[in-house]
Design a protein around this nucleic acid. Structure first.
Length: 941
RNA sequence: GCCCGGAUGGCGGAACUGGCAGACGCAGCGGACUCAAAAUCCGCCGCCCGCGAGGGUGUGAGGGUUCGAAUCCCUCUCCGGGCACCA
């Protein structure tokens, strides 16, 4: 850190001067509403926007944590801010703001510990975070910065919930429609009632049940992940593979509970197909595709029989390989499969191998023991080896009279497909391993290549064998034919299966949006829109409950007795209702905040349609619309981005938004990592106190320590805060350094000692414009010479395209080169060059540039933000004489200066005249000559 | 196991569509200025040989395509991320 002393020139650009400049301009911009972007109509139609094309740029909004920022947090915010400032100077009307995702667990945990209402803590954290971000000079339109906990905001989150509740998915039209249209179709007879009666013949309870079962938001009695330590039920995606909570790594138990579900599976195909229309990182698209997990296959029914009974309930399986049907030698159900209790035999058939019985006296005992053991093991342990239990009954393979034994085994998962599989050990390696373990026969149904090992399943293509009418056909043709036969005979049909499940939407928390639903005797009833917002009641009882392993889920709102039951008149006279006690998940508020940024003060609609279409509609026909650029961490690749897409598509179907997708372009910013140091006990030591180098070794308090790279944070004792950097260098230097470190989408290690390089760049620019001793301008008023002018315009050209492509690191390198040339000349920058350079710097270092801009133009000048971003003069980009390298036999042997428009013969003769080239040609005959215009002269001898 | 990325000096990175590898910055080395140091300015800075001009070699490894490959193709190694008994 540079220590100012008596010798430091009084007007040097150092941390103190930067701080003064930064706070002065921040105050000025705030007072002048410099970042306020106008809407085409409505309350926010004022502001200093541009009349040019619109652009909507957004960061993933943060959770307002109480622990403060480190230098890694604002990386993406700085990048969007630079881009936004560039696009504003390039004439775009840019919407850019920042909100807060403020519901959630930490505030509630804080409330539990302090007894203080979570809103107080939340709002304090928001204020603190705003202050820290403001210090960076981010150009947000503050009027638009909503928090999901604002009552005016979650009113509309609740409104959207009701829109979804009051909709159903019409598979014929592949879109959501109002639930009233479904009722209309049932009552008019256009749509048959599921059980064949007419609509009028159904009781009110039955009608309600039919309608409710079609809603996009519905109540299901489902096994949920109950986490006693957190006191909440978790979504599947919040539970790790080891069966523990992602947050805190606590134990999670399965409990049945009435839960709100969102029918996202109805949109699986559209969510999948429309990925192709998005300008997103391929990795994120792949993750979403994997998450949705679409696979085509067939449902096949296997009749189950036993020696004692005649016909039982058939076992239905899903398979992607119906062509291997004739290789089925056994069946497996998931241990939790509902058919198990029916299919389990009273006694073991004669001659059953001991291996199949688990040593139990009866099948029922064996099943009970197996289930008990499976429940104790984690999923990871269960995956180690194949195990199962015979149920004592058989199933019959369709088209044959072959009877195959039915097992339960935990390698079959209840949560995928039908929870049952046909065991085909010849063609599936998992089935093969099970068959080996239980001595089951193997029948190959596809002829493997001669070199295929006998002991492995064969999953490749080839002619069908042992498969009756399929024999000789390849896999694809076999699939087609078998599905045809299955369909004809009623044994099966083709189907599409998805890995994705419906979205579990309830949380047993206090600090979330109340679900605007009450219950009467028949089920859920929506509150009318005019009863929104449904505000959270005050909760004073924050005492932790005994959260034992065997406890039952309990929503905190259940403690507010005067809230639980309510008398309401919902249009048919006053009735007593029970309220929904669950709240929404944190994902809810973040599903649609981009829409509220557009029109945050509107109390008539979530967003005015004209405002929405101005900012969200795609100018290109066939475009998907949405936010033009969305920047955030890759950790939201699936959940947040998938849920938001789902809601957006529902809103689109219902006519509330104008485009198919919420986020047209997505960039995942990389993470800033930092070195952390461990002593010989393996304990982390404060990174800032470590001395030494990789060569000399690192030491802390004289003791050797080892270095590793990790996430910046308290646990690794390697945090560097923006405040540290403001104190040492100022916000503009921090911004410049973070943008210079590397490409935006790449992880990079933080190195505090390198930050000084970015400050030195700014100091050199400053010195080329301002005299450090006097503070006077030291620019040259005569015009710049031709060489400098050409360099300037090459720089403009490069910087413009780098800015456009968000390659800020190379833009900064080009600006540095230009400035280094000015420094080398040592005469102060020509005024016209200085003014252009300052404009190019303005997006990166706005305070610094504004200060120099005003010094160059006098106090009355308008902000540099309002100046146009420089455009290169094409005439100054073309050179008359260019230097071209010459290759002889693939190696560069010299360079020649030739006319830019020289033809090949001219270029080659110039090359041959160059002494070193001539020496390497050595008078030999040219076998080949080549001139790539302006690039390279190639000679082959 | 499967699917995505990635690997370039001591370090972060640059090289746009196959055309001068190492821009820019950090660190390091040398010089100027200074009584001295800091700061600043100038220069050097992949590795090997050479006083030098210059030569050889070089983008994780091996092979290929091409007049020409960091860039395209094949095989492999290592690192990061995602998914994982998904039928």
């Amino acid at each position: 850190m540079p220590v100012p002393d008596a010798d430091t020139p009084p007007h040097r650009y150092d941390a103190a001067l930067a701080a003064a400049i930064e706070s002065r301009w921040q105050d000025h911009w705030e007072a002048s509403g410099a970042y306020e972007t106008p809407n085409p109509a409505g309350a926010l139609s004022t502001g200093r926007g541009s009349s040019g094309p619109k652009l909507f740029v957004m960061d993933m909004f943060p959770y307002p944590s109480g622990s403060g920022l480190h230098v890694g947090h604002p990386l993406g915010y700085i990048a969007t801010d630079v881009y936004v400032r560039f696009k504003r100077m390039a004439g775009f009307n840019v919407l850019y703001t920042m909100g807060f995702d403020a519901f959630g667990l930490p505030a509630e945990e804080h409330a539990r510990q302090t007894g203080q209402h979570p809103r107080i803590n939340t709002e304090a954290n928001i204020d603190n975070m705003r202050r820290q971000l403001d210090r960076l000079g981010l150009g947000h339109d503050k009027r638009r910065g909503v928090a999901t906990t604002d009552i005016d905001y979650y009113r509309w989150t609740q409104w959207i919930f009701l829109q979804i509740f009051n909709s159903w998915f019409d598979p014929g039209e592949r879109r959501a429609r109002p639930i009233a249209e479904l009722v209309d179709e049932f009552s008019s007879g256009r749509r048959p009632v599921p059980d064949g009666r007419t609509w009028e013949e159904l009781s009110e309870a039955e009608q309600r049940e039919v309608v409710d079962s079609h809603r996009l938001a519905y109540v299901a009695d489902a096994p949920v992940n109950w986490c006693p330590a957190l006191g909440t039920v978790l979504a599947n995606e919040e539970v790790t593979n080891e069966g523990r909570s992602e947050r805190g790594n606590h134990e999670v138990f399965k409990r049945p509970l009435k839960q709100w579900m969102m029918r996202i599976t109805a949109y699986a195909d559209r969510l999948l197909e429309d990925l192709d229309l998005l300008d997103w990182p391929e990795s994120v698209k792949t993750m979403q595709r994997n998450w949705i997990g679409r696979s085509e296959g067939a449902l096949i029914s296997f009749p189950a029989t036993s020696s004692a009974h005649l016909e039982m309930q058939p076992i239905e399986v899903f398979t992607t390989r119906p062509d291997t049907l004739f290789g089925t030698t056994y069946m497996v159900l998931a241990p939790e499969h509902p058919l198990v209790d029916e299919l389990v035999a009273d006694a073991w058939p004669a001659g059953v191998p001991e291996l199949w019985t688990g040593g139990a006296a009866t099948p029922r005992e064996a099943v009970a023991a197996y289930r008990a053991r499976a429940a104790e093991l984690s999923d990871a342990d269960r995956s180690d080896s194949k195990s199962g239990i015979f149920l004592g009954h058989d199933a019959v393979v369709p088209f044959t009279d072959t009877r195959v034994p039915v097992f339960i085994a935990d390698y079959v998962l209840m949560g995928y497909g039908t929870g049952a599989v046909m065991g085909v050990p010849g063609e599936d390696q998992r089935d093969r391993e099970f068959a080996e373990a239980y001595s089951l026969p193997v029948i190959r149904t596809v002829e493997p290549p001669p070199d295929h090992p006998d002991e492995l399943a064969y999953t490749g293509d080839g002619p069908s064998i042992n498969s009756r009418f399929l024999d000789g056909l390849d896999v694809e043709a076999s699939k087609v034919l078998i599905i045809e036969r299955l369909t004809e005979t009623g044994f099966g049909r083709s189907t599409v299966n998805y890995r994705m499940r419906d979205w579990l939407f309830s949380r047993q928390r206090y600090w979330g949006e109340p679900i605007p639903i009450v219950f009467d005797d028949y089920g859920p009833v929506a509150l009318p829109d005019d009863m929104l917002p449904l505000e959270l009641p005050e909760l004073t009882d924050w005492a932790p409950r005994a959260l034992a392993r065997d406890s039952e889920p309990e929503p905190p709102l259940g403690r507010v007795t005067e809230w639980v039951g309510v008398d309401l008149d919902l249009g048919d006279g006053p009735h007593h209702y029970r309220r929904e006690l669950n709240t929404m998940p944190q994902w809810a508020g973040s599903c649609w905040y981009y829409l509220r940024y557009l029109d945050p003060t509107n109390d008539e609609a979530l967003v005015d349609p004209d405002v929405e279409s101005y900012w969200m509609a795609d100018p290109d026909p066939g475009g998907v619309g949405g936010v033009d650029l969305y920047v955030g961490g890759v950790e939201h690749a699936v959940l947040h981005l998938l849920y938001a897409r789902f809601w957006h598509k529902v809103l689109y179907d219902l006519g509330h938004v104008s485009g198919l997708e919420p986020f047209k372009r997505l960039i995942n910013q990389g993470y800033i990592q930092a070195y952390a140091f461990k002593d010989d006990r393996g304990v982390y030591v404060a990174a800032e106190e470590v001395e030494g180098s990789l060569q000399k070794g690192f030491r802390h308090d004289g003791q050797p320590v080892t270095r590793e790279l990790g996430k910046m944070g308290k646990s690794l004792k390697n945090s560097v805060t923006p405040d540290d950097m403001y104190a040492s260098y100022g916000a503009d230097t921090l911004r410049l350094y973070e943008m210079f470190m590397g490409p935006i989408d790449q992880d990079r290690p933080w190195e505090t000692r390198s930050v000084v390089g970015s400050q030195r760049v700014l100091q050199r620019v400053w010195r080329n414009v301002v005299d450090e001793e006097t503070g006077e301008l030291r620019i040259a008023d005569e015009p710049s010479d031709d060489d400098l002018l050409r360099l300037l315009h090459r720089t403009i050209d490069g910087v413009r395209s780098d800015m456009e492509g968000m390659r800020f690191n190379t833009a900064i390198a080009k600006l540095t080169e230009l400035n280094n040339e000015l420094t080398r000349r040592g005469t102060g920058a020509p005024r016209e060059v200085a003014a252009v350079m300052v404009r190019m710097l303005a997006p990166l270092v706005p305070h610094f540039a504004e200060e120099l801009w005003h010094r160059l133009h006098g106090g009355g000048a308008d902000s540099v933000m309002r100046a146009e971003f420089p455009a290169a003069d094409p005439a100054l980009l073309v050179e008359d004489i260019i230097e071209v390298p010459v290759q002889v036999n693939g190696k560069v042997r010299g360079r020649v200066r030739i006319a830019a428009d020289a033809d090949e013969d001219t270029a080659v003769s110039a090359a041959l005249a160059e002494p070193n080239v001539a020496a390497h040609v050595g008078g030999r005959e040219l076998r080949k000559q080549l001139y790539v215009s302006g690039r390279m002269i190639t000679l082959v001898v």
